[in-house]
């Protein structure tokens, strides 16, 4: 009986501690998913999401370098800037290189971004770029593994909610591993360099 009491006490304390920690975090914004800034290094890994032309499975792209950017079409500056830089890198590739590269735009705003729109949106930047999204749960799980963070901010603007987001480009090696994380506004030449290096190594 006393053992049970101890167990209950420990459990209660644990829950309480957890509650204290979680409530002491900034609560002004409502997070959709926000991996801790000092979380362990992102592991990446396979995922499956939806495109206008069916499922996109990362594991189908072994042998290719995959460039992944998480964003949303409502984003009028940061996302287009990075996607345009990615497109510029793709434009700098030879046909042979391009055949071994897949650029991917993952919308973390499935509420507003439908797959048909995402297809056109991605193709606007580069004809080979794919636009995908998924359920909020799927997206949260994938974003956490990749260390991509985003959260919905309500009532800031007349245009509806805004989304705070990390703005990295994730470079997936031909073996499917997360190889490099390029920060916001990485120049096209740098994206090209990293991609080429991976292609020649494999």
């Amino acid at each position: 009986m006393s053992k049970l009491n101890t167990a209950i006490t420990v459990l209660t304390l644990g829950i309480l501690m957890g509650w204290i920690v979680s409530t002491s975090m900034p609560t002004s914004d409502k997070p959709v998913t926000l991996p801790n800034a000092i979380a362990a290094a992102p592991t990446g890994g396979d995922f499956s999401l939806t495109s206008a032309d069916g499922a996109f499975r990362l594991k189908d792209y072994r042998g290719k370098v995959v460039l992944i950017y998480f964003g949303y079409t409502f984003c009028s500056d940061i996302c287009p800037t990075n996607l345009a830089l990615m497109a510029q890198a793709l434009n700098g590739m030879t046909e042979n290189e391009l055949a071994q590269v897949q650029a991917l735009f993952v919308s973390v705003d499935p509420e507003r971004d439908k797959v048909a729109t995402l297809k056109k949106y991605a193709q606007h930047f580069h004809e080979t770029m794919l636009g995908v999204t998924g359920s909020p749960t799927e997206l949260a799980e994938i974003a956490t593994r990749y260390g991509a963070a985003y959260r919905k901010i309500e009532g800031e603007s007349e245009g509806g909610y805004l989304v705070d987001h990390s703005s990295n480009t994730y470079v997936i090696a031909p073996d499917g591993s997360l190889h490099t994380i390029l920060p916001h506004a990485t120049p096209a030449q740098e994206i090209l360099k990293v991609t080429r290096k991976l292609l020649t190594e494999s």
């Binding site: 603007s157 990390s166 916001h184």
Partner: peptide, 20 residues
């Protein structure tokens, strides 16, 4: 446009925050 607003970006802890 339906609305025209002044906005800025705050780059903080690896997050891009667009604010009015």
């Amino acid at each position: 446009a339906k609305a025209v607003e002044l906005h800025t970006h705050i780059h903080e802890n690896g997050m891009m925050k667009m604010r009015r």
